[in-house]
Design a protein around this nucleic acid. Structure first.
Lengths: 352, 352
DNA sequence: CTGAAAGCGCTTACAG
DNA sequence: CTGAAAGCGCTTACAG
């Protein structure tokens, strides 16, 4: 059953072994034995033999035959990093299926989880055109380069990475940072900071740059050297970071925090020393957790628009299917804003 | 491109139209035109014609042909409710892919999202054996009944629902409730309650029963009429519910709460009136959010073991593939315990 | 009750 | 540079 070392066993093998014809075996195996009035005895023999050699039908052959009069579906591959199978994937899939519904597409979605750094394993499936199209998320630079060197003929969309060769859909991180600044009520704010991680990617650095630029253009002091480089998320680190920063900065201030899991620590410190959010400290977190909204003050967040990204990616594949694209399409999307009390802005809920 | 109304267009159509042979067209379409030295002109003609008739290759035919010497993969269908595409799906997929890796299986995973109440649409795919096996999650009773009446030959595992006909994997909710009671430090606890929803399913009622039974067997008073029937999750409802309940109950008490999104409201009320968790109130929430652990006190939770369920489901399918099962297999799993400070137990982290 | 034959749509040697 | 033929593994009329 799918074990790599399993031998190739087919209906013909069973038929030969039993001295029956291929059709008889096929009928029995499909559960139509009674219907076609194959003797109970023969049926039993077939079933046993199938069991014995661990027969697994070739689904592709079956489908090719059965679906003779149907339209062949578009087989879409979604490559996703194995270490990142979380709610973001759920929302991405939601986007895919919504689009499928909306446009009445006939798509079969195959999810392939790959070990980070081990994408090459799947390269052959792409270059031998085993899918109608593919979306690839979470590739590292080397892998992307290797993929770009092989000329793949099926349309490919990169999710969250830019490409000169293939299509791509990403979040506009710089503008996100900028707009987060705009989302905060910056009147009266004296200083601003971006709380990011030590080891981080291009997207976070862009967001930081955008945020600082946005604040400065409102005459808010924002020095890059203020921004802490956090090692990882924890309550204590959130608490300590807040403590340290607030001792340096002049209230009120505005923060964009790279990970909402720092929220509890930061908010606890504020509570402990009587810093009022949003009066003294405006704050927006990156990435969303349902619990943020249930906090008091309700905490603001910006999040990757996974659903929109899926939609765009699928749109691109459709387009690429309909007309051979010479130039890669590139779409940059804005995030999902959950602007709530902590930002200092009046309105609850969606900013846009 | 996958549109339902698209006409069936094949290589042969292109070949006929252009007065070329099928092989020439095929070679060009696969990007091997230069390699086989098809004239540029012919290539262009082919490509244009393909574009024009919006040609989409039949992936099944291609695979059948190409993979002649490979073993055909096991095609696994995962049916998931469209309105539930969240992090639970992510963890479920993680379980699947881990098992695939561990057992070195060759499986192609097809994800099918279905509209709740509309599962029947996919019935034909199951009864015509278009998959090697299927996992079905989130079915309602009618749908399950309809599916059980059709005799499907491919192995099927229900996720989260019991069945007399097909295999099933579920969480043991009653025992979960019981064990939650056991997880709390019940010495000195005077009363206990289960905070559940107005409209809810069998699983939650079982958990409630188990929890109350568990508390009572430790001589903790637990009256079913104390248990509130919550309408939905919000900060305010959490706050008000806590207020109301704590006015009736004698401290210290133990609570199992059906939804962690009530946590912020409940904890805020406790803070406001000086109720100390876990000294006065032991508390465990159902379902997990990363933010729970980052609270102080760190909040305990029990969560659906989606990953384990996926593993078990795949194990069952493998078994069913290897030997024709006459009796449905049924596996009940225990949840994931994240027992932290709020339960009153000493140890941090995993209970088991 | 069982078997021989056709054919699903494609790719790949092979021949020219 | 292009075409004719074989064949992937299966199911489905059809014939007996």
């Amino acid at each position: 059953m799918g074990k790599k070392q399993a031998s190739k066993m087919q209906i013909k093998n069973i038929a030969d072994k039993l001295g029956l014809s291929v059709s008889t075996v096929s009928v029995v195996l499909n559960g139509r034995g009674d219907q076609v009035r194959i003797s109970k005895e023969t049926q039993k023999k077939v079933l046993n033999a199938a069991k014995e050699i661990n027969y697994q039908p070739n689904i592709y052959a079956r489908r090719l035959r059965q679906a003779a009069n149907e339209e062949a579906p578009y087989v879409l591959a979604l490559f996703w990093r194995r270490d990142n199978l979380n709610s973001r994937l759920g929302r991405f899939l939601e986007g895919i299926f919504q689009t499928i519904d909306l446009k009445e597409l006939k798509i079969e979605l195959v999810v392939q989880a790959y070990e980070p750094g081990n994408f090459m394993t799947y390269m052959d499936m792409l270059s031998s055109n085993r899918f109608s199209g593919a979306m690839i998320c979470g590739l590292n630079e080397e892998e992307q380069k290797a993929l770009e060197e092989r000329e793949i003929t099926i349309p490919i969309v990169f999710i969250g990475r830019d490409s000169q060769i293939y299509h791509s859909v990403l979040m506009d991180s710089y503008r996100t940072g900028e707009e987060c600044a705009a989302c905060m009520n910056l009147s009266g704010v004296k200083s601003a900071a971006f709380l990011g991680f030590e080891k981080t990617g291009r997207a976070e650095r862009l967001m930081e740059a955008g945020f600082l630029f946005g604040c400065r253009s409102h005459d808010v002091v924002a020095k890059e050297e203020w921004n802490p480089r956090i090692e990882k998320s924890s309550y204590e680190i959130g608490y300590q970071t807040a403590k340290q920063m607030l001792s340096d900065m002049e209230l009120p201030t505005a923060w964009l925090v790279a990970d909402c899991r720092l929220a509890t620590g930061i908010m606890a410190y504020c509570r402990d020393v009587g810093i009022c959010v949003p009066k003294d400290l405006r704050i927006i977190f990156f990435e969303n957790s349902p619990l943020l909204r249930y906090n008091r003050p309700a905490l603001s967040s910006v999040d990757i628009p996974s659903q929109e990204m899926a939609k765009s990616a699928l749109d691109i594949l459709i387009l690429a299917g309909e007309s051979r694209m010479d130039i890669p399409i590139r779409r940059e999307l804005l995030p999902i804003y959950q602007i709530r009390e902590s930002s200092g802005l009046e309105q609850e809920e969606n900013y846009k």
